[in-house]
Every structure is written in structure tokens, then in C-alpha cells.
Amino acid sequence: MLLPQARGALSAALLDLLRRDPDPDRTAPAPVWPVSADSSADEALSLWVLQELHYRGFDDVDDRWEWDPTTIALRGRLERALEGRLRERYAVADVPRSDDLVDDVQTMIEQHDGPSLAKHVQQHASREQTETLLRQRTVYHLKEADPTTWVVPRLGAGPKAALLEVQFDEYGNGDPGRLHHALFERGLVASGLSATYGDYVDEALPEVLEQNTTLSMFGLQRRLRGAALGHLAAFEATSSIPSRQLAQGLRRLGFPEEMTAYYDEHVEADAVHEQVALRDVCLVLAKDEPDQAELVRFGAWACLDLECRTAEAVLGLWAAA
């Protein structure tokens, strides 16, 4: 993957820096990071680029930038701002807090009423609108499950083994052909879309980038491990039924079997993952480490909140087309 297009002064300065050779003995002062007037897309893209250095990097960036103090400092600043925005919204959200964590997460999901893109695709979205949605989804689906894998070595035996039970299934149970992001790749190619990692990032909505940078932040920061797992539980618990609706919509629109197969797989897989993630991962984590329970709620809330913002943004994109 090559670096994406800049979306403002900050990402322009960052991309310019990353195209240079990092010099470990550099004594030059740290760059002063400019901030654009409307900086949300600019900040979201900058953070996405910085986090990607920890995944598969960029063909036009020296891999040593991953742990350079300059990139780490900027990533820290952008993640603090992102977490601050999330916590501001979370503080005023109606979050159930009983002594039953599973019930709290399920109640949060039930009470949440954002727009459902899956229902639109099932019932009346056009082929073009659906392709637009699939291109937005590539930002996550082409590295599906990866952000949560960062959490594995940070857990005790109970939640660790259970999390790996979910992740192993996400990764095709040892069969690369059944790995979920490989299934999505096949679906994209059969649908005439690009399956190359990063190809659609230039058109990714800021809301989609932020949905992804939040998940990476939860995964990359050990402090937020409870949020990463709460996010996983809410994500899996809101996947089976929408996946079935998406598969129905894709069939209605004549998408190839490879694309519907990806969503078919998620109907059954996520019905399992939901139970394991909620009960064997999150609940056991909260028993082992009681201070993580509130982070589980925070992560679950963030998953619902960010998907709602993405859905509204995609509806806006469809309306504007």
C-alpha cells in the first residue's frame, strides 16, 4: 500500500515527514504540527496513517518510522483527542450500570436506535449505493479481527483462551482460504471491486476512519483492553441479523455468490462469537479485573455510537450522489 492523499495541513506535513529517511541520530527539533481550520478529516486520516505503521506499513515509508519518537508523540496526541471526544459523548449517554455486565451490554444494544445500513441494502439500496458502502467497509474488512488481536498477550488465561477461540474462527481456523478478510477479498474481486489493502482509503469517510482508528487505539493501548473487548462483544452481537439482511440485499441486486458468501458466513459465525465474546471474554475479564468492567461498557457503547455515525454519513453520501 502507498500513502494516501493528504486531507489538510496536518496530514500533508505528516506524509511529507514519512516520505523522508528517518535518522535515528537526528538531533533536529520535533516538527511543529499544523492544525487545519476544520481538522476532523485531517486528524482522522493522520491517525489512521500513524496506526497503519503498526499493521502492514506503506511501500513508500521506511518501516523504522513505526517506533520513531516523532510518530509516537503525534499518535499519542491524536489518540488522546479521540478518546476525549468519545468520553465526552459517553458521559452524557444513557448507559446501564447494574451488577450484570452481560445484561448491561445487551440492554445498551437493544436501546440503541441508529439507522441500519443493512436494512437499506436488504430492501431498496441500488447496486451503486451498495458498492459505495462495500468500498467504505474495505477499510475494516480487509484487516478484519486484526485490531482485537493486539489484546491477546495482555489478558489472563480465561479471557485470553476465549478470545483466541473467537479470533481463530475469524482467521479461518487455520485455513487461509476461510480467513474472513480473505473471504471479503474474494467477494470484492468477483464484484469487480479492488481487493487491494488501502485502495479505497482516499474515499473513506472521516466517520469510517474514526471508527477504525478507535478500534486500533483500543487494541494498541493496553490500558484500554477492556474497551477493545467490549467493542468486540457489541460488534459481534450486532452482526448476525444485519449480515443476513446484507446477504439478502446482495442477492436481490445480483451480486456474485462470493460476496454473499462473506455475509452468509457471518450469520452463523457471529451468533457463536457473540456468546463467547460476552460471557467467556468480557464477563471473565471483569471478574479477573473488576476495574475493566466500566471499560467494557465504554467499548461496547463506542462500537454502537461509531457505527451510528458511519451509517448517517453513508446515508448522506447516498443522498448527495
Binding site: 448476525s240 441479523i241 443476513r244 450469520v267 452463523e268 457471529d270 451468533a271 457463536v272 457473540e274 456468546q275
Partner: peptide
Amino acid sequence: SAVCRCEKSARKPWCDG
């Protein structure tokens, strides 16, 4: 595997939520 218990799954015997 998740086995349906509500009898309403469209993919019985497996759970589909």
C-alpha cells in the same frame, strides 16, 4: 457452533440470531 433453541432460525439447526 451455536445450535438454535428458539426454533425460529432460518438456518436450523444453527442459530442465526
